[in-house]
Design a protein around this nucleic acid. Structure first.
Lengths: 280, 280
DNA sequence: TGTGATTGGTTCATTATTTGAACCATTGGT
DNA sequence: ACCAATGGTTCAAATAATGAACCAATCACA
């Protein structure tokens, strides 16, 4: 592993649940030697990517990331472009809708939208990263990767998060095959108990999978009807968002969606779009 | 220079004016060997900090920075906390107000607020980084650093941006001494022609300077009256924002401000605060 | 107040990684 | 057809990263 990768790996340890980390703990969590860890963090600090609390000397993410994020959004306004789509889906389905990007071997939550329809809803604030093996979004993305890529990412053990989390590689592969067949991913309680989630992949220019679009609902609310509605809006949303990003939907997936009755945007055979437009 | 620093240095080359950079140009701009450059960028790409355009193979900032930025704002909601202050100052002075953080040897623009008072105003969208030697914010910060720190940062040549830019180190030092004496920094046309700017430093917990707060106006609009108004609001704003960040104002600076008649927040001798509250 | 454990941080000989000139294969322009 | 770019790769030489052992300071607890 390169030195830079080792340094950046340290950044991945920071989390909503663990926003401040001391040097020793950082070394322990990463497996990197304490001295090395210290030097790497110092370099990150020089750049402003992390900063050190004056009292406890713990590290936390620094202000430099804000400049980069603003720059990113100014050059690739994906978030801004995606929000209306997310809102329309959340509104139409009555459930939490979110989008994530596949980067650095993990899924990072980019944007989400809630529906005011129900008091109880799936919240996304603390889910800034989605485990690939335990979420519908992750399955949707994994199903699109090559075997080699999957192997590289799922090399380690699959962490059990709930009783339903697939921790067996064979079982996961079987599920991914099913995902490919169906044209969408579905999980119930694999990431958090009682959460039922549906997801479809998003694509970039050359047809590479870049992320996922998903709807997550309390399992108790998931009826066949709602499931149908979500599938329709997800596939339509994925078409729109892939188009927004200048991407191209793979032909085989488009065919599956078509066959399932989730017609393309240009089709117009179902006039559902009226109820979508105009977010909450 | 460490390998990590070299990799991160590549990130600093990306800019509003130059959001996409090819490999050769990247190597040319950074002075790093092309092969090295390629390997470093690959490592950054693995992490999602940069991504490569599918067509031209140029690099641009990647989606991973968004996760980090959201995490940063969720742990240190400086931006959010600062905005009301910025808006109140912009409203009270009628001019563009902005805040920047000192990180990685440069000033990065964190937040800004405009006033609707005038059609012509100083815009901040493209000024995501402020040169330390050529801006009032930069002078405000530089004046607070130790000689050693300054030496490390201003080691290279001072780039001439306008006819007024101080490019002579001695001249700059003289200006900084003046800044320290006055308790605020002032530049006219050093960064962009015909822009008159005033700035004060912001501080962290142990009294270390963490950034600057500034107001920038078209030079033609700067009257003695407006200058006075800006100074009052800047010092008051700096007190508030330093307090928000849990910082402490150095005693000498507080004394200078006091002596100049810019009383502390608790003083209440001037009742200006009524006109500030309630942003645009 | 002593004691042991933990913290952040530093040192320096050993080691493994980074480095860069030279080298392809493509692309775009003249 | 040509030239000059581009992105990308190779491999011996050189350099920078590494980590066990070491401080000094702090903390918890008796």
């Amino acid at each position: 592993m390169g030195t830079v990768a080792k340094a950046l790996q340290l950044l991945t340890l920071f989390d909503r649940a663990r926003p401040r980390i001391g040097l020793s703990e950082l070394a322990r969590l990463s497996g990197v030697n304490k001295a090395t860890c210290h030097r790497l963090m110092s370099e990150l600090q020089d750049f402003g990517l992390v900063e050190q609390l004056e009292g406890s000397r713990e590290y936390r993410i620094g202000p430099a990331v804000l400049r980069l994020a603003v720059l990113r959004e100014s050059t690739v306004p994906l978030r801004e472009a995606a929000l209306p789509v997310l809102q329309s889906i959340a509104h139409a389905t009555g459930e939490t809708t979110h989008m994530s990007a596949y980067a650095g071997g993990e899924l990072i939550t980019l944007a989400f939208a809630y529906s005011p329809a129900h008091g109880m809803k799936v919240m996304m604030e603390d889910a800034d990263r989605l485990p690939l093996h335990a979420t519908s979004s992750g399955h949707a993305v994994l199903a699109q990767l090559t075997d080699a890529e999957r192997q590289g990412i799922l090399g380690g053990a699959l962490r059990r998060l709930t009783a339903e989390t697939p921790t067996d590689r064979a079982a996961l592969d079987a599920r991914l095959a099913e995902v490919r067949r169906n044209g969408f991913a579905e999980t119930v309680g694999t990431f958090e108990a009682d959460v039922h989630s549906l997801a479809v992949p998003l694509f970039g220019q050359s047809g590479r999978c870049t992320g996922a679009l998903a709807v997550a609902a309390p399992a108790a609310r998931m009826t066949p009807d709602l499931r149908q509605t979500i599938q329709r809006h997800l596939t339509d949303g994925a078409r729109r968002m892939t188009a927004l990003a200048g991407g191209t939907l793979p032909a085989d997936l488009a065919a599956i969606w078509q066959a399932a009755g989730w017609a393309g945007a240009e089709d117009g055979s179902r006039n559902d779009r009226a109820m979508e437009t105009g977010g909450p």
